[in-house]
Amino acid sequence: MTPGDSAAASHDGRNPDATAPHGAASDAVAPHGDVSARLEPMRRRHVRACAELEQVLFARDSPWPPAAFHSELDLGGHYLVAVDGSVRDGDEHVLGYAGLAIMGKRGDYETSLHTIAVRPEHQGTGLGKALLRAVLAKADELAAPVLLEVRTDNDSAIGLYEQHGFQRLGVRKGYYQPSGADAYTMRRDAITGERREDGH
């Protein structure tokens, strides 16, 4: 991930432009090249494509199988996909995805960015940043802090997260397996109603 968008990301924050309760479909549209991607809730029909993309992007860091995505959907996480084409026309394609786990209860929510990824050919287009902002908007709606893990050698991803208010809390040695790569734990504080009104 880069502030300009690119690179390779994560489960638990590997990288927005990877190379980591469902609401209504998002109206967000992210430009990438000559087409626009729709951001919408992840459905069961999207899982296979997401799991296949995991194998491409995260082969060294325990890519999620379909069962992992199904489990996250069962738990009520806020999972989005970026798609183009349409189901009706039979040409719908998943270009990327992002997932936010939601824990706790009303008034005391906590969230965790579990995964975010973009197909290699669509990296560097702003799509990863759009997915990140969309899931962060859900956390803001809940006035919840957001936690994530990101590889310590992924400078572009770290920069993008810091650009969006995340701060490093510490290092988790050997967090990513089987590669053995270390991870930073990062946190973005809850955005309260007052802070939103102030624009901060």
Rank of each mutant, 00 (worst) to 15 (best):
P3M: 00
G4R: 04
D5V: 15
S6G: 14
S6C: 12
A9M: 13
R14D: 12
N15W: 11
A18G: 13
T19H: 09
T19W: 10
P21L: 09
G23I: 03
G23Q: 12
G23S: 02
A24G: 04
A28F: 02
P31K: 08
G33A: 08
V35K: 06
A37K: 09
L39E: 10
E40G: 01
M42Y: 13
R45H: 15
H46C: 15
R48C: 03
R48S: 14
E54V: 05
V56K: 01
F58E: 08
R60Q: 14
F69Y: 14
D74E: 15
G76I: 03
Y79P: 01
L80H: 07
V81G: 15
S86Q: 11
G90E: 11
M103C: 06
K105W: 08
Y109D: 01
T111P: 04
V118Y: 12
P120E: 12
P120G: 05
E121R: 04
T125D: 10
G126E: 10
E141M: 05
A143V: 02
V146T: 13
L147P: 00
L148I: 03
L148R: 06
R151Q: 03
D153Q: 09
A157C: 10
Y161D: 13
E162I: 06
G165R: 06
Q167W: 05
L169P: 07
R172T: 09
R172C: 00
G174M: 10
Y176E: 04
A181R: 13
D182K: 08
T185V: 15
R187H: 10
R188G: 01
T192P: 14
T192F: 08
E194S: 07
D198K: 15
